[in-house]
Design a protein around this nucleic acid. Structure first.
Lengths: 143, 143
DNA sequence: GTACTAGTTTAGAATAGTTCTAATTATCAC
DNA sequence: GTGATAATTAGAACTATTCTAAACTAGTAC
C-alpha cells in the first residue's frame, strides 16, 4: 500500500514531478530536515531547523511545503489530541506511541497483517482508506 | 477496563462525588445532551444544544464541564486530524470511523480481544495506558 | 442563621496553531 | 525574451481553546 521510501533528492524531484509539482530548494531542504532527524517535529520545529540552511524562508512556506509532501505521500502528518501537527517521513505501516512524560513520539512498526486484521472489524458498508493506531503511555528512558 | 455506562442523573452525581466534585445543573445538562444525541458533537455544538435548557450558560463552562466529564471517565474526547475536539459518551471499547464525504463520525465496536492484540505489537519497555484506532474513508449513506 | 471555605461559573481577553490574501518572485514552454 | 503558471512571502485573519479575575453557590462550623 505505501510507496517505497525515497532517500535521494532526485527521487524527491521525481515524486513531485509525478504530481505536476516542481522541486524547489525549500521543498528539498524541508524534506531533508525530516529525513535527518526523525523525531516527529512540529511545523515550528521544522521552521527552526530549515532556517540554518535557508535563513529567509517563511513559516507559511514551511506549512505549504509540508502539506505538499503529505499530498505526495512522502510524509505523514501525525496528530495527537490537540497538540500541533507533527511530521514523519516513515512510510512503512506503523503506529505511534506518545510518551506522556517526555512528550516524545515513537514509531511502532506493525506486522504486515495487523492493519488488515484491524480493518476486518469494520461492518459491511464501511470502506476505510486509512487506519491510524495511536498509543499513549510511558516508555522507558532509553527509547 | 472501561467502567459501566451511566444513564441516570444520580449515577452521574455519584461519579462526580467520587472525584470530589459536585453535580451542577450545567454538568447534568451537558451530560444529558451527550447521551441524547450521540453524534460526536463539538464543544460549540454542545453549547448550542445546551442553551435551549440553560440559555445563560457560557462557552467556557461548556469547555470546563466537558473536560470534567472526560476526567471522570464519563466521556471520551475524540480528535481527528486538525478538527475541533468531539465528545462521545460511549465507554465501551470502540474505534472511530470518519466519513470523509459527510464529515460524520461513527463508533465501531471492537471485539474484546482486539485491543490486546494490537497492544501486543509494542516492544518491551513500552507501557500503553490507552490505544486509539481511527479509520478514515467512506461509509454507505444509511449509516 | 452567619461566616467561612472551597468549588463553580462567567465574560472577555489572550493564546497557539494554522490558513488565507495579495503581492512578488521564480521557472518553464515556447 | 515573453507569457503563463507555479511557488514563495509577509502579514493579517481565523478557529478552537485556555486563561484570568471576578462573581456566585453550596456545604460546614460555629
Amino acid at each position: 500500500m505505501s510507496p517505497t521510501p525515497i532517500t535521494t533528492p532526485d527521487a524527491l524531484a521525481q515524486r513531485l514531478a509525478h504530481s505536476g509539482l516542481r522541486s524547489t530548494p525549500q521543498r528539498e531542504v524541508i524534506y531533508d530536515v525530516l529525513l535527518k532527524k526523525r523525531d516527529h517535529p512540529t511545523a515550528d520545529e521544522v521552521y527552526a531547523r530549515v532556517r540554518t540552511d535557508l535563513p529567509s524562508i517563511s513559516l507559511a512556506t514551511v506549512y505549504n511545503c509540508l502539506e505538499t509532501l503529505v499530498q505526495c505521500d512522502l510524509v505523514r502528518a501525525v496528530n495527537f489530541e490537540r497538540g500541533p501537527t507533527r511530521y514523519c517521513p516513515n512510510l512503512r505501516p506503523h503506529a505511534h506511541f506518545h510518551d506522556e512524560q517526555s512528550g516524545s513520539t515513537h514509531d511502532i512498526d506493525l506486522p504486515a497483517d495487523l492493519l488488515e486484521k484491524v480493518s476486518a472489524v469494520l461492518p459491511p458498508g464501511y470502506d476505510a482508506k486509512s487506519v491510524e493506531i495511536t498509543f499513549r503511555g510511558k516508555a522507558q528512558a532509553k527509547h
